[in-house]
Design a protein around this nucleic acid. Structure first.
Lengths: 318, 318
DNA sequence: CCATTTATACTCTCCTTGAGCATAAGATGG
DNA sequence: CCATCTTATGCTCAAGGAGAGTATAAATGG
């Protein structure tokens, strides 16, 4: 509105910033979702963005591949944050952090790198509902949220706070919605139950189980998990996380690991097969207990279509 | 992985950039979706990001409000692009453009500003399917895409190209998917049918109908439209675009305007009412043709819940 | 051979969704 | 006043999909 269209990005003095890339690199190894971490699991891999690349995404790929020695499969931008001098120095340069979600396989990471894998539920214990609602939800989180809600100034506000809690955490017999990862994290933050918040407002509620991370990295991770949980339901991205051949149960376990909830086995197979996403390899799985399962591979021909047109995955409610 | 977690955003030399904000500001006025443009409709409003604000979003709000004199309703980040010196000078400072989607009402823009409103279908004539598939699709776009597909080097590639075209544009009796706005734009770009691409590979296919924009602004707009079309189906964001009181038909027309396709009237009402998103004001619409309609308003109490838990909107297939 | 574990094939019911029919309540023109 | 047009609004119906359960098959380890 005020700017001239002739020079839409003419450099304005004084708004130079530093651009950082932060990556949420996900893999699933026998039923547990993992992410690449550095510094003993306390931070996500991040690095400065150099303008030697054509785009942000190619920069990210190049940088990740240089670190892990293996190519990334699916890559997707998550969110861009602005941080005023994180080091506390108000005059320090400001930075913009551009976060990405990337999918790989654990075995792809080369040896001799600082990076290693951490289970993502270490950071979000309340997000894993595969064996039912985690104990910490009812025992720790719900009571602390309740007292936070009660600490609001008016009865109306109290009710609103508690309603938000019940919706996002599935309390009071509400359904658990596995996609609200970020909303849950932000609610906990608001209630001062997250160490990263660094506020001591609420003395009887200092922190909830779950490993903290540097700066806003856990928030970025929450964004990534939320995005992935939403995406697997309508885009065939699980593929990027699977080995070349797999059984339908392995596929199901991977989906369940990501979604943090169980799936009705028969319905899962029905959906997978009717969408013609996979085909039999002819071989059977070895070294299994029980009746051996057929091995499948993804039909890459269909992938192109589904990548744009969409897929479906069933996630049961109970 | 290589970086020390102690200083996750320590300023690296040589990666300083300029940060710009670009906004897709949407309103709907009697059935046409509009966006704020500058420079005679050839650019989206954009401005430098100053670090005087706590976050990118507050910066955007402040800046938009300063320009239009009115507050923004819903705001959502779209995508972050990196551009190496757009002016063509390889040594010019690089910039990062952070784009946002914002919802308002047309009447909210103050007088005396450079900004004005443009219909968004001016830029994407092929996206409006309310009166059936636009003529330009079959007459201009499909043939040009077909010859682009045929220009591929191998028969396999030719088939793949054409399959992409049929999927994204709903050709060959496929269903039209209104959410693939960005994919369609990128396909046209790839086929050199977009003037902004600035490539003359394809001599018999220079440009398709639709007003161009500066730099990658039309791509950003496509991103915004796609996001909004997807969002109205599961989040009650249409609200931000409606006046305080409205009839159900007006609401339906707004949804149709955004989605670019028609909705079954009775089913639309069924869904809206069963979700209890609206309530009667008691008054009736004046100055109408036909039987007068009840006026409704949004139930803000429900909004909080739906904002997180989701809504549904029907978009018929025929 | 039996218990256990997993694979795989069907079935059943409920709910949603798309779509159509019918009627009501106004305005307008003869 | 009536015919007709336009929009509003109520109701029904059929097809498909989603969730959940039953039954049977094929392996393993005692």
């Amino acid at each position: 509105m005020a700017r001239s269209p002739q020079k839409p990005s003419a450099p304005a003095s004084g708004n130079a910033v530093t651009a950082d890339l932060v990556a949420v690199l996900v893999a699933v190894t026998d039923g547990s979702p993992k992410i690449v971490t550095i510094a003993g699991g306390s931070a996500l891999p991040s690095g400065p963005f150099e303008f030697t690349h054509r785009s942000l995404q190619t920069a990210l790929r190049a940088w990740v591949e240089a670190q892990t020695g293996h190519p990334l499969g699916y890559v997707e931008q998550l969110y861009t944050f602005a941080d005023r001098g994180r080091s506390g120095d108000a005059k320090s340069p400001h930075s913009v952090s551009i976060s990405y979600l990337g999918l790989t396989r654990e075995d792809r990471v080369g040896e001799g790198f600082e990076a290693h894998w951490s289970g993502w539920y270490d950071y979000f214990p309340w997000e894993d509902h595969r064996a039912g609602a985690p104990a910490c939800l009812a025992k720790v989180i719900a009571p602390k949220l309740k007292s936070w809600a009660k600490a609001a100034s008016s009865p109306t506000l109290q009710r609103e706070r508690w309603q938000r809690c019940t919706i996002t955490f599935g309390l009071d017999d509400r359904d658990w919605n596995e996609e609200l990862v970020l909303q849950r994290y932000e609610l906990l933050w608001e209630a001062s139950l997250i160490p990263e918040a660094g506020r001591a407002h609420n003395r009887d509620a200092p922190a909830v189980p779950g490993k903290p991370m540097t700066a806003d990295h856990r928030r970025i991770l929450a964004t990534g998990i939320a995005r992935l949980r939403a995406k697997i339901k309508y885009r065939p991205v699980v593929f990027e996380l699977m080995p070349a051949e797999f059984t339908l149960l392995q596929l199901q376990r991977s989906v369940e690991a990501l979604a943090g909830r169980l799936v009705h086995k028969q319905n899962f197979r029905r959906l997978i097969e009717q969408q013609e996403l996979v085909e039999e390899t002819g071989a059977m799985a070895a070294d299994t207990v029980g009746r051996p399962a057929k091995l499948f591979r993804f039909r890459h021909a269909v992938l192109a279509e589904r990548a744009v047109a969409g897929t479906k995955l069933p996630l049961s409610r109970t």
